[in-house]
Design a binder for these strands. Structure first.
Length: 704
DNA sequence: AAAACTCCTCTTTTT
DNA sequence: GAGGAGTTTT
């Protein structure tokens, strides 16, 4: 049975946001204020009550995870489920449009999509050609991406600088990069949005088609849009002006990737008739946590003022503890986790440790391991970025789009070893001379005589394999992948673990066409990072956005770490660091614990750190403020977790022991206290809860 | 193709 | 001061 659109389930502001649909609306949604709820209800309301076709609502977010969650929650309102919808990320929705329309822009619709790595290898190649130090590629990639997200074309960029500066060179690299992408029939992530804009600007008739198709635009995480994304939204909304954007300027933490917080303020100017709604009721955190967070963020200037409130209780005080060094900090965190785990009714999955930079995780890992606390790290490295996976995907890309030189070179290097860079350069030079693709050039060079026989044989294999695979039709992409593996000796060089990954890739390719599969793997980065097992989560503050945990630790509250030293001299960046801390704090439901170290190792040398300047922005009366700083003497025994087992009882019933109780069944000992006859245990019985029992009467049985 | 050497960086990373 | 990437040497 489909869920009803019951607006009584919403608070007044949420309801207003759902019911209002006479033009542009800006919903300023504070952390934990139910913004996804508003978007899903609004979607359902528009379709069920206002008779908008579901396929006419362009609903856009930033991550696949968010898009999937939204789809799922929207589908609950429709008994049959929706089939044709436009709910997705900017990139996936643009991709969908471009796959249909791109031919007018001089690309074929079997274009490849390049990720960071492929972009980097193309840029490296260009730098080499231009005799520019190749090691600069990272900075060049970044700058080009920022230019593209700011809608500055190579031509614009070249005309706006006037000398032989570095920018002049950068401009020429940028120009060449775009030309090469087109020659390879490839788009990078930025192009997906950029070319969609171009398409609409150059071809009004195509724009008309999509104007007629989309009658409402819903945008999530609007504060994270860059200029090109916002431009696309403006173009799409220009006719009917039915656009609702939801966001929170206080949670804008992706400036370094081009996100422009200014878009929130521009929205009010560009759509002067805008209706602004603030969602300030928070359904997540205790009052203490909100007090602390509100105070902190209020120190930022240039923001839409908001004050989160809750009808939850005051809750525990926010902890702040400063320790001597990173090891002690980590030990403090680990022991606090264990302590809370044992004393309160929390699972390990209820805890998160958040940090500014990835290297901070190391000390925490060591400490958690020492306390045998299970944990997992949520990081950016994904399944699809592994070498063996990307090699296979490159093979698929060449099969779909033989002009894709970056992928072709990659598969030559990984599948047809023995062909070195010298040979590849020779072929590339020839390709330029002939004005042919690399693939066609290789074909012609096999027949000419400028190469050794061994190399010719390898190249012949390459061409023959690709052509034979391309000419066959496969039931699905899994079979295609198997064929590639059969025809090459690639798998012989892989160890078991990598082989296992390949099997996983193959099974994920069942039931999809080549095109679908490549779109999926190109536009997904992190392969479903759903929390593995019941363990503590470790992640950067950036990765924590959108999540929530009952207990949150934020470590490294030091000037130089948070705020990071590179951001300290720049007012804008300092504000972003403050927002980063704010995002971290507002992840917490019940407990928030901040820690810092006096001394830590950074860049392989010990340095002293002052407490974070942000600590001055939070009200102490909401906190428990502890400084565990010992000048020199190693003295860490006074803060050991409360569990030193010494009596015979404690030995048999030490923490973690599985026991069986005649009434409650099997449980795990969480705490053990008291002496002799009065000894009591605290036991967590799964599904029943925590019981405190006197050991004398409990009648426990130890289990293996 | 592996080994040795040198140089460089050292923040965060939705697609 | 470690670790990665690129380059040169064997």
């Amino acid at each position: 049975m489909a869920k009803e659109v019951l607006t009584e389930n919403l608070n007044p502001q949420q309801r207003e946001a759902v019911l209002y649909n006479d033009g542009p609306m800006l919903v300023l949604a504070g952390a934990g204020s139910g913004k996804t709820r508003v978007i899903t209800y609004k979607f359902a309301y528009l379709v069920k009550k206002k008779r908008f076709p579901a396929s006419s609502i362009f609903t856009v977010t930033f991550t696949n995870k968010a898009a999937d969650e939204m789809k799922q929650r929207i589908n609950l309102f429709f008994s049959k489920g929706l089939k044709q919808t436009w709910i997705g990320t900017f990139h996936s929705l643009c991709n969908r449009i471009l796959r249909r329309e791109i031919d007018v822009l001089g690309y074929r619709n079997d274009f490849s999509i390049y990720d960071e790595e492929e972009r980097a290898s193309l840029i490296k190649q260009i730098l080499k050609d231009f005799n520019i130090h190749e090691a600069l590629y990272k900075g060049v990639c970044n700058k080009i991406s920022l230019l593209k997200s700011a809608l500055i074309s190579p031509e614009d960029f070249l005309t706006h600088n006037n000398g032989y500066s570095f920018d002049e060179k950068l401009g020429r690299v940028y120009l060449r990069y775009q030309d090469e992408l087109k020659r390879f029939n490839a788009l990078d992530f930025d192009d997906l949005v950029l070319l969609t804009i171009q398409l609409f600007k150059i071809y009004p008739s195509i724009l008309k088609k999509y104007h007629d198709l989309f009658s409402y635009i819903l945008v999530d995480e609007f504060q994270d849009t860059n200029q090109s994304q916002y431009t696309l939204l403006k173009i799409l909304a220009s006719q009917h002006r039915n656009i609702c954007v939801v966001g929170d300027d206080d949670q804008s933490i992706y400036k370094f990737r081009g996100a422009d917080i200014q878009n929130i303020f521009n929205f009010k100017k560009d759509f002067s008739e805008v209706k602004v709604i603030k969602l300030e009721q928070n359904y997540r955190s205790t009052q203490n946590i909100l007090n602390v967070s509100n105070h902190l963020i209020s120190k930022n200037f240039l923001r839409n003022d908001k004050k989160l409130w809750t009808d939850k209780c005051t809750g525990e005080r926010v902890f702040y503890c400063r320790l001597n060094n990173e090891e002690e900090e980590a030990r403090y965190v680990a022991r606090s986790i264990k302590d809370l785990y044992l004393k309160a009714n929390y699972e390990y999955r209820d805890f998160a440790v958040l940090y500014r930079i990835n290297i901070q995780a190391k000390a925490i890992e060591d400490a958690l391991r020492a306390e045998s606390i299970p944990y997992h790290i949520i990081s950016g490295i994904s399944f699809y970025q592994r070498k063996e996976i990307k090699d296979l995907i490159s093979y698929l890309k060449v099969i779909m789009n033989p002009d894709d030189n970056v992928s072709l070179v990659r598969i030559i290097n990984s599948f047809y070893r023995g062909i070195g860079n010298a040979t590849i350069s020779k072929i590339e030079l020839e390709a330029r001379n002939l004005g042919l693709s690399l693939f066609a050039t290789i074909k012609s060079m096999i027949r000419s005589n400028g190469l050794t026989l061994t190399i010719k044989n390898k190249l012949h294999d390459l061409i023959a394999n690709i052509e034979s695979i391309s000419s066959k039709s496969f039931k699905n992409t899994a079979d295609l992948l198997k064929e590639i593996i059969d025809k090459t000796d690639y798998v012989n060089r892989l160890d078991d673990k990598r082989l296992q990954n390949l099997f996983e890739l193959i099974s994920s390719a069942e039931n999809t066409s080549l095109r679908e599969f490549l779109d999926k793997v190109s536009l997904i980065s992190s392969a479903d990072d759903s929390p593995k097992g019941n363990s503590v989560s470790l992640m950067t503050l950036h990765n924590a956005k959108g999540l929530e945990f009952p207990v949150v630790f934020i470590i490294g509250l030091e000037d130089g770490i948070l705020p990071y030293f590179k951001a300290i001299d720049d007012g804008e960046e300092l504000q972003e660091e403050r927002r980063l801390l704010y995002v971290g704090m507002t992840r917490a439901r019940d407990y928030l614990c901040l820690t810092g170290a006096k001394r830590r190792k950074l860049f392989s040398k010990y340095q002293d750190f002052e407490p974070s300047r942000f600590l001055a922005d939070i009200p102490r009366e909401c906190c428990n403020w502890i400084e565990k700083i010992q000048p020199t003497i190693e003295d860490s025994n006074d803060d050991k977790a409360p569990m030193p087992p010494s009596s015979p009882y404690a030995l048999t019933y030490s923490i973690g022991t599985k026991v069986k109780h005649p009434v409650w069944g099997v449980g795990v000992i969480r705490d053990c206290y008291g002496e002799g006859e009065d000894k009591k245990v605290m036991i967590n019985f799964p599904g029943i809860g925590i019981k405190r029992l006197a050991l004398k009467f409990a009648n426990l049985q130890t289990m293996a």
